[in-house]
Design a protein around this nucleic acid. Sequence first.
DNA 1: CCGACGCGTTAGGGAAGCGTCAAGATCGGT
DNA 2: ACCGATCTTGACGCTTCCCTAACGCGTCGG
Lengths: 226, 226
Amino acid sequence: MTRILVVDDDSVLQRTLRINLRARGHEVLLAGTGEQALATFLSEQPELVILDLGLPDLDGVEVLRRLRKRSGVPVIVLSARQEADDKVEALDEGADDYVSKPFSIDELLARVRAAVRRAGSDPDTPETIEADGLVLDFAANRATRDGHPVHLTPTEWRLLAELARHRGRVVSHEDLLRAVWGPHYGRERQYLRVFANQLRRKLEVDPAHPRHLVNEPGLGYRLELG
Amino acid sequence: MTRILVVDDDSVLQRTLRINLRARGHEVLLAGTGEQALATFLSEQPELVILDLGLPDLDGVEVLRRLRKRSGVPVIVLSARQEADDKVEALDEGADDYVSKPFSIDELLARVRAAVRRAGSDPDTPETIEADGLVLDFAANRATRDGHPVHLTPTEWRLLAELARHRGRVVSHEDLLRAVWGPHYGRERQYLRVFANQLRRKLEVDPAHPRHLVNEPGLGYRLELG
DNA sequence: CCGACGCGTTAGGGAAGCGTCAAGATCGGT
DNA sequence: ACCGATCTTGACGCTTCCCTAACGCGTCGG
């Protein structure tokens, strides 16, 4: 989904972040020093940087400053308690957010989500879709058919959103399962049958002859819109 | 332009700030003590607070803490060099930025601009909302249902305000908890149940069948108006 | 002609989420 | 130090949702 550069000399933290961010579907690049961070940034062009201020070689703020010379990439700064001055300096240099150590993984992940969201939502995932009498509002989590509100469950929303991202194209069973249920899934096609059926009953005019949520036997499902 | 509360016991600095901020088109309120600051804040509802940590009566951090109980107003903290610990504490309590004395007026003004800009880019923070017999006045912290005044506690206001910012859209449990209780929260959904229940009992005509504060199981809550 | 396979459809049980109430715990003001 | 208001925490019953196991239908290939 998003390519994220993690700059930290603590290998434990590196590992923790890599695992958690990967589980969220991000691609993770690692750097242990400031020099390495700058080099990796230039060659890989990540879309988000998580930067620890306490680095062995360069001052973290200096790394940020050099990044800012080349790019407006979102940067989340990590800092230890006693580095309060650095924190403010980092904000001045254009850091987007900061998190004080010690922090919970959940908190950092939430800020990553916020940063990614701010950086510009996926152009692939539209906020609202309208076709025939069908209106899907992914931003507000509302759906209506012929003006009548339809209630969708969380899993139904996730499945529908994944199909909407690739609307008009077939999405494989495996991809759908991974996107909706998580990276450990891929073979449970029964799930898809059940939830596709539920969505059709709620969204299609004639659920027995679906015009929007179409199955491609042996391949996957496709969302067809106007 | 913006209404700014300056809290400082140094009359020279008060004067300097008043002149400079007025020159920038801001309305300036002054307070020399913590008590006065809190009183003025409640009555005048400024959009930004500049707070000196070295006050004659209350601890500056204590003033900030009490402000945060009532409001998410942006706060810029001023502190002398030797108060480094207070600085960290202030950031943890939710200060948006801080400036170390001695500082240049230009530097402070730059931070004021930044704070105002950040606050302004927030999704529309409504001042008043009216629907059915329900009137919510976020500027004055007053609510009435069918003309009868309803008393809401600080936490209830903050939850309601966060929902109102995104009215019509589902706000996730996580986002609500972070916005109302702080960045370290995210999993404590029972808080939301309790306070949603309290708000419904106070605001809904039929609390058992809410028409405004609606739950979306597994997703979050939505404030429905009009 | 028949078995294998993929898909649609339905329903039930268990788990998770939610509303509700009330008893501590905390905090601010008197 | 006390009291009232507010927030936290735990417990309980109810609702919603997800997983799972059926069964039927059609298609395809042997």
